[in-house]
Amino acid sequence: MSDNKQLINLCTQIRRDIVRMVAAVSSGHPGGSLGCVEYFVALYQSVMHTKQPFDMNGKDEDLFFLSNGHISPVFYSTLARSGYFPVKELNTFRKINSRLQGHPTTHEGLPGIRIASGSLGQGLSVAIGAAQAKKLNNDSSIIYSLHGDGELQEGQIWEAAMYAAGNNIDNIISTVDYNGKQIDGSLEDVLSLGNLKMKWEAFGWKALEIENGNDLNQVIDGLNLAKSLTGKGQPIVILMKTEMGNGVDYMMGTHKWHGSAPNAEQLESALNQLNETLGDY
């Protein structure tokens, strides 16, 4: 997977995986998953240096932490299609005796997962700890983390943000999935984040923006720019604007598909909009 066409095909296939996975069990979170497809593909296929087979300690490789664990479908599909585990295992998502729990966990030994997440607000602290372990081990790899924008309402995020800047943790690139929506509605209606860029800057972070997080090139360029700014004494955050439900017309422009799965008819409509590019699981 090197050229852009292939990566775009991968994005489409991952979107198919996501809607099929949640539809199969009538549960899960398709909206945020669909909105972050380009980010995951950029990270795992272009930006991060990773090693196989999976090793929990991840020595001399970049590490990724998903803090908003409910978008597990996009994480699982990306991991499977990047060779971490068999693609057909996506069929077990949220089913009994599966390694693909509703929210990611290390508990079932799924390769690619380094921390459980689901209860929000915890992933930034974990990522910072991993970043400090890298420094202690003289490992110059980079830590990446992804957070929901609604998740930033959790206080622990800001404890972690204060700590990272205060301790010059400069080997971390955190990204906010800035889609403006959470389960109960728009962020503005539920609890406004105010001027989010200024908040991160006030906490001492270098804040970058990606205008369209559903444009693969923009995401790759944004992450590479962030990478070039590591090692300069400051943690880096990317405010990445995405569209919840991106790629499925009826899921876009609403918060309603944050945590609901399509029925059979809706699934068919979604799949008609997403070509089977690489073969379904």
Binding site: I115, S125, A131, Q132, A133, K134, Q156, A160
Partner: peptide, 11 residues
């Protein structure tokens, strides 16, 4: 959380 993260890397 930081303690959990530090274990990833063998601490």
């Amino acid at each position: 959380g930081i303690a959990a993260g530090l274990t990833i890397g063998g601490k």
